[in-house]
């Protein structure tokens, strides 16, 4: 078999792909969260950050493409592996798991996160799609508001005379255009998460993402062959801590908005 088929067509090769794409996506999730957190530094910070990203032009598109590819590989391998898994085990046991050493039940029944990776993953994918539609493509019909995020822009230049502060002063609705003016991310986010059910959906999805990561982050080390009994504890702790930190970081935004800490 060729190198490519040894990677793409074997179980272990695909696990490598899954682990590496997962690692990339984890990196994205971390950076994205750090970006989100700039909201607590006020509108200027987050809008400026967004503007900087947008100004990168082709680089941004390369990053986006890379991200898309990773998502594609991650989902493709996941579906491929899951369907193989299903085929490999078509019968379920009738006996409920009741080991003779009953205290070992928890070892034998695998962790919830591990058992449900494909489901949490697919729901996260659906959420990510919605999230893109919500804030990136700005489809007005799904934001639960009368507002159209497409119209949220800010002034970029500091013009003391007209009392305009850069990146914080909203342009009136109708003014500003895609590509020419900076997007008022701050307003978009605070308005967007002002809708309680959207925030709840968001929190739940982030929760699933973190459950997914709590297993995925440790399994990644296993798939790449870095895990040993000695490092296992450390790796599991890292996965768990990272998942909780991400959860806290992401969820702090909608909660703060709903509770009125961020206006």
């Amino acid at each position: 078999m060729s190198l490519a088929s040894n990677i793409f067509r074997t179980s272990l090769g695909r696990k490598y792909l899954m682990a590496l794409s997962g690692a990339g996506l984890f990196g994205f999730v971390v950076v994205h969260m750090l970006g989100n957190l700039t909201i607590f530094a006020g509108p200027a910070a987050i809008n400026q950050y967004a503007a900087k990203l947008h100004s990168m032009g082709p680089l941004l598109w390369i990053a986006r493409l890379g991200l898309l590819m990773m998502v594609g590989i991650h989902i493709w391998t996941a579906i491929k592996l899951a369907s193989e898994n299903k085929r490999a085990r078509q019968f379920q046991y009738e006996g409920t798991i009741e080991p003779v050493d009953i205290h070992r039940k928890n070892d034998i029944v695998s962790r919830y996160a591990a058992r449900t990776m494909i489901y949490s993953g697919l729901i996260i994918a659906a959420f990510a799609f919605y999230h893109l539609a919500h804030y990136t493509w700005k489809v007005p019909q799904i934001n639960g508001l009368d507002a159209d995020f497409e119209t949220f822009y800010v002034h970029e230049e500091d013009n003391g005379e007209k009392q305009i502060t850069a990146y914080t002063t909203a342009m009136p609705i109708g003014e500003g255009a895609e590509g020419e003016n900076a997007v008022d991310v701050y307003r978009m986010v605070t308005t967007g998460f002002g809708v309680w059910w959207i925030s709840i959906f968001y929190v739940i999805s982030i929760g699933l993402l973190c459950i997914h990561l709590s297993h995925g982050l440790s399994a990644m080390f296993q798939s790449l062959g870095f895990k040993t009994k000695a490092s296992q504890k450390l790796i599991n702790r890292f996965a768990c801590t990272a998942a909780w930190l991400l959860f806290a970081g992401y969820v702090s935004v909608p909660i703060s908005i709903l509770l009125g800490f961020v206006k």
């Binding site: 695909r14 592996l81 085929r87 695998s110 962790r111 990776m117 399994a219």
Partner: peptide, 16 residues
């Protein structure tokens, strides 16, 4: 792979 075994999702039941 050819034999139709599934893939490892690191659940750890095997070890147990």
């Amino acid at each position: 792979d050819e034999e139709g075994f599934g893939n490892c999702t690191v659940t750890g039941s095997c070890e147990a």
